[in-house]
Structure formats: C-alpha cells, structure tokens
C-alpha cells in the first residue's frame, strides 16, 4: 500500500498527483510559494480544492523528466512578460503609456501610478499595468541606455 512513490503525472484533463497511498488526485496545479524572490524553490502541488498535497523544496533536486513536467506545467499558468526594451513613453509622469518590447512581443503598458512599480532585490522590477498584467524587468541595470532613461522618470 505505502510502497507507491508520490509523483506528478499528466492525465487527460491536465495534471494529477499520485500520493503515497496510491490515491490519484486529478486537476491539481502547481504554485510557486516565492514566485519573485526564489521561483525555483518551494513549489507547491495544490489540489483542486486548494489543499496542499506536496511541496517540492528545490526544483533542482528533481530528476530531469519530472522537472520538465513541473516547469511545463508552471509555464502554462504563468504570464509575466519580461520587458526587454522600452521604446517610448506617452509622457514622463503617471498615468503614462509605455511602448515596450517584451519576450512575448510588442505591447503597450498603461502605468497608473508610481506604486505600480515594485523593486525586488537590487536589480529586478515588477511593473503592474492597468489590466493587471505584471511585467518584469529582470536586470534593470542591464537595459539599454534609452530604456533605462525612460524608466528612470517613474522610479
């Protein structure tokens, strides 16, 4: 009975979790406990009812196959475009519309207030736009001069 190795599996509707007792919980999803400060640590397997079934301490500790599955599942749920360049701003004070090049393509970011920009650590920025989408600037210091200059006014 208890010999079953708990594991994550793909099933018809999405993901399922097989626990130690061999019970299959379908419709589970993965949640990062620290999506911003430590995305690859403490990833929780949460049941459809919101109860935690398992917690992966470190994704690095998983075997490659399981890790690929976890990362694919996480990627499917996450939508945080990474800003690569700031092309233009409608004006230098809020509210303003920023034309940005992200890893998911070109888009407009409507910035409502300075509080929508949040610093994480020394170099990371999180910018929430009017639609509630969170844009990420991974390395603020590594942006090109023009982008940095445009962003600077709002920081």
């Amino acid at each position: 009975m208890s010999g079953v190795l708990p594991r994550l599996e793909r099933d018809g509707s999405g993901l399922c979790w097989v626990d130690r007792a061999g019970v299959v919980h379908s419709g589970v999803h993965l949640v990062r406990a620290f999506p911003l400060t430590a995305p690859d640590e403490q990833v929780s397997v949460v049941s459809a009812h919101g109860a935690e079934l398992h917690l992966f301490e470190h994704l690095a500790g998983l075997d490659p196959e399981a890790r690929a599955l976890v990362e694919a599942a996480l990627a499917a749920r996450e939508f945080m475009p990474v800003i690569e360049r700031v092309l233009s701003v409608s004006r230098h004070w809020v509210p303003s519309i920023l034309e940005v090049q992200t890893d998911r393509g070109l888009t407009q970011l409507a910035l409502e207030s300075e509080e929508s920009i949040r610093r994480i650590g020394a170099d990371k920025l999180l910018i929430r736009d009017r639609r509630g989408i969170c844009f990420v600037v991974e390395y603020h210091s590594r942006l090109d001069r023009r982008s940095k200059k445009l962003l600077e006014r709002f920081l």
Binding site: A33, S44, G50, A51
Partner: peptide, 14 residues
Amino acid sequence: HEFILRLPFGYDSV
C-alpha cells in the same frame, strides 16, 4: 500556508 498560496505572488505578495 494555503491561503497564502492562493495569493497572486504567494509569499512574495505585498
């Protein structure tokens, strides 16, 4: 723990 996981940024939520 569980209600924290339900927040958009988990433990990183402000």
